Computed example of a mutant assay.
Amino acid sequence: YVSLNSTSPNNSFLIIEKPSPDVTYEIHQDGSTYTLNFEQEEEIPVINNTPLNIQLPSGIRLSDISSEDNYHKKQISIFIKGDHRAFFEQNPIANTYENVSNIKVSYSSSKGTELLINTKVIQGFQYTIVDGKLQVTIDRPNAIYDKIIILDAGHGGRDPGAMKGTTKEKEINFKVLNEYAKEYFTNSGIKVYYTRVDDTLIALADRAAFAKQVDADFFISLHCNSATTSAARGTSVYYSSINKSKTSSGLTSSILANTLVNNLSKSLGTKNLGIIDKGFVVVRDNSVPAVLIELAFLTNPDDLSLLTSSTSQKKAAKTIYDTVASLFEAYPTNR
């Protein structure tokens, strides 16, 4: 609404109604021309670290929702079956978390509608449906998960590790932990963070520092051994006495190492070489109890046969999982 009014032959004034009460304005003069600019103040969501309460399309159940923790990218993906982009345009998601940078909505035919939550640091999360809304809780990993470990597949990228013919240590390490062990740990109640999620070389110091970023309870690195003689064989587990960290229930690196070497050598039928105190970076410079497994020797014919067998690889993965689960029973986190 605009109205021109006069109070005398030499005085006039305009009455201009603002589009809405919360609109602000500025007047700019350029010679005899005046420009009036209106601006709608954007509503800034309140960031108070309360759970995200996301309005859902009608009929969506918990079984229609899945998630992926892409922690290496600091991203949480929540997938809802179907294409609901239009719904979320009409019902935008309000961010209530200081450590959440933004939330983006997209769609793919294979996964459905994706709610991509970008975080400033690695965060744990859980979700449920309350009163028809998707409630997403985001916090430090140890505030979300009762049990947290790191599995570190040794070597990677341009570093193949030990080799025997075309057999590369880095590939065995990755297959045992990131493929076979992952099957056991999924939906087990034990949260696993993997230092590498593909064939990438990660600095040793970064692997060790990862434990503090994710509030891990302990750290397990997997390797395969080699020697100048084919007679060397067996399983050993390394720890560092310099690393004196222990869990709230008293689990130490040496206890972790001793339990693993006994269980692995027994299940695989390898020679038990015991535990060895040595200052490898990933065990020495760690903030939590940490061990490095040397599963067997690539340079020994019998050990090599075991290391390249999918049956034995799966057995090693299952033993690592069973050992971790039993240690959490014996040394609870009390979270």
Rank of each mutant, 00 (worst) to 15 (best):
Y194T: 00
Y180W: 08
L304Y: 14
R335Q: 05
F13E: 09
R158P: 09
K315M: 10
L115S: 13
V130M: 02
I122G: 02
S310E: 14
P19T: 06
L273Q: 07
F185R: 00
Q90W: 00
S20W: 02
Y145T: 07
Y193F: 15
N173G: 11
G269W: 11
F219V: 00
G124F: 09
F297G: 06
A330E: 14
K318T: 03
E41S: 06
N37W: 15
N99F: 14
T167C: 04
V176I: 15
A205K: 15
Y145A: 08
S254A: 13
S241V: 05
F87P: 02
L4R: 14
Y1E: 10
G59W: 00
N99L: 13
S309Q: 04
T319A: 08
K246C: 01
P141L: 10
A216T: 09
K170G: 11
L62F: 03
K212M: 06
Y193C: 11
K81V: 06
G59Y: 00
L268Y: 07
P21R: 05
K278W: 12
A232S: 12
H155W: 12
P19G: 13
N49V: 00
N10H: 13
L306E: 04
P141G: 12
Y1N: 04
L177Q: 04
T96I: 06
S63F: 03
N262E: 15
K212G: 00
I138Y: 04
I16W: 05
N48M: 01
S287W: 02
V281Q: 14
V176S: 07
Y180H: 13
S249V: 03
E42N: 11
L116T: 13
K278Y: 15
D139T: 02
E169G: 09
T50C: 00
F88P: 01
P332R: 04
E294H: 11
L116N: 15
A317P: 06
K182S: 05
S188V: 12
G154D: 10
S3N: 11
S12D: 03
S287D: 10
S110D: 11
I16R: 07
D277Y: 14
N102V: 14
L251Q: 02
